[in-house]
């Protein structure tokens, strides 16, 4: 199997996997980074969202072979101490129910705020609409994105 050199959370990591292996499973099964979640595997739910060169991307359909020059950030690497403004806002608003979708939600929100630090409510909803929360924590997710935008 080919070895892939990956840049994840600022570290150079190597994975010995088939070329078509989605980044999601490389992270989870080979690199021990399980914060990125599997929800649907077909780019519908956003649970697997990571940043590729700073942009929110669904890792479940992203083959590892195309990533050799990409900078990947996962929830584990979003901030050193878990204190990214979005993470802080998530704590303050007490967003999570089961919490399974939240890493993906946070990564989507962080990427939005990077591009647009002061999004309107409509922009927040349009962006976050791609991430499913089966527990229905949407009200607090929306509130937390708004709060995070005041911290950036």
């Amino acid at each position: 199997m080919p070895k892939y050199q990956l840049k994840i959370n600022g570290k150079n990591l190597e994975a010995d996997v088939a070329a078509d292996t989605p980044l999601l499973w490389v992270l989870r099964d080979h690199l021990g980074l399980v914060g990125t979640k599997y929800g649907c595997g077909i780019a519908q739910c956003g649970a697997c969202t990571v940043h590729m060169n700073g942009v929110a991307t669904r890792s479940c359909i992203l083959p590892v072979s195309g990533l050799e020059n990409a900078e990947i950030t996962t929830i584990e690497g979003l901030s050193e101490n878990g204190d990214h403004p979005v993470q802080q806002a998530w704590e303050e608003v007490d967003v999570a129910q089961c919490g399974y979708c939240q890493a993906g939600q946070i990564m989507t929100a962080a990427s939005l705020l990077k591009k647009n630090p002061k999004p309107s409510e409509a922009e927040i909803v349009r962006t976050m609409n791609g991430n499913i929360c089966r527990c229905g924590a949407y009200h607090r997710i929306r509130e937390a994105v708004k709060l995070a935008s005041t911290k950036i």
């Binding site: 914060g35 990125t36 929830i75 584990e76 878990g82 998530w90 704590e91 999570a96 939240q102 946070i106």
Partner: peptide
């Protein structure tokens, strides 16, 4: 607030799938 907040928002292995 949720006692597991920090772990949830930093991607710690908590779930069965993890």
């Amino acid at each position: 607030k949720n006692v597991e907040a920090k772990n949830l928002y930093t991607g710690k292995p908590l779930f069965g799938l993890d």
